[in-house]
């Protein structure tokens, strides 16, 4: 591949991710509004929020690590996007593979955790402790799912996994071949978004939005950007693993938005679990489904 082309891809992929991610945030808020019989925010609301937050006159920092944490949170996702193939663009997906992507997606959380730690607010620390606990909860079914898919495909290369599904048509889609894994993956994905009923680490009424408690201005803005990326990455990863990726941008985006719509629709119907209930739930049903699914794959 020509280097210019590669550089173009590497720039475009995060950019597209960001734009699509903003639309996903909008969709999420609109769905919430529709469920609550409200009108919901205008079309560009996510952009307004991000611009406003970055244009705050006074920005409260708690130290250098606070700043670096936010940079890591954004930068980690920007890097992760280049490992996630989209129609027509593979970026450097072949040089990393799915395990690397999975671990790269932990970098933003790590950055956030560091930044929040430096904020010296116990609410934030509790939030991070809970977030890590939640990660322990949903990553276990998630890795089972990843294992199953990668083993079935015989590769950890996302490009190959997508290509295999597309070559076989609908019947070769992960969701059709491995329905149990697809269900387990969906639950794990829902939990990884940190939406109700799994939002134990945000818990506004309890620990004042946990990690975000000391975030103001561009710090919060950075997290809003990160949220766009997070929604995009999660849904696209799911689409790539189970729904055959996308041949064109249209069906790619359609699938991504639809996939995301499922957990989001569920989310606004429920209150919050307690931490141990979340763990119990995650370690029971999705793990069980996932293991049975893997057994079928083997």
């Amino acid at each position: 591949m020509a280097p210019m082309e590669l550089i173009l891809e590497l720039t475009l992929m995060p950019l597209i991710a960001f734009l699509v991610g903003m639309m996903m945030v909008l969709m999420m808020r609109r769905i919430a509004a529709k469920i609550q019989r409200r009108v919901g925010p205008p079309l560009l609301q996510p952009l307004y929020d991000i611009v406003k937050l970055h244009s705050k006159r006074t920005q409260i920092s708690h130290g250098l690590i606070h700043d670096i944490g936010i940079i890591m949170a954004m930068g980690g996702y920007i890097a992760a996007e280049t490992l996630l193939p989209v129609p027509g663009m593979n970026g450097i997906a072949e040089k990393g593979g799915i395990i690397t992507l999975l671990y790269l997606m932990m970098i933003p959380s790590l950055g956030l955790a560091l930044g929040v730690g430096q904020c010296a607010n116990p609410n934030g620390s509790i939030g991070i402790a809970r977030a890590l606990t939640a990660m322990l909860a949903y990553d276990i079914p998630l890795v089972i799912v990843i294992f199953g898919v990668a083993y079935a495909a015989g590769t950890t290369n996302l490009v190959d996994i997508i290509a295999q599904q597309q070559a076989g048509g609908f019947a070769a889609w992960g969701a059709v071949e491995m329905p149990l894994l697809a269900i387990a993956g969906l639950i794990a994905m829902h939990a990884s978004l940190g939406k109700q009923p799994f939002e134990i680490y945000i818990a506004p009424a309890e620990i004042a939005t946990g990690p975000m408690v000391e975030m103001s201005g561009k710090y919060l803005g950075g997290l809003f950007v990160m949220q766009c990326f997070q929604l995009y990455t999660t849904s696209v990863l799911y689409v790539s693993l189970f729904l055959g990726g996308g041949t064109t941008w249209f069906d790619f985006l359609l699938k991504s938005f639809l996939v995301l719509a499922i957990p989001v629709s569920i989310a606004y119907l429920f209150p919050r679990y307690r931490t141990e209930d979340l763990l119990r739930l995650m370690w029971k049903w999705p793990v069980m489904l996932g293991l049975i699914g893997v057994a079928f794959v083997l």
């Binding site: 808020r29 509004a33 205008p42 307004y48 929020d49 004042a208 939005t209 408690v213 975030m215």
Partner: peptide
């Protein structure tokens, strides 16, 4: 209020 872009915040 959200249709005006107004949201409640905690902190």
């Amino acid at each position: 209020m959200e249709r005006l872009g107004i949201q409640p915040m905690v902190s």
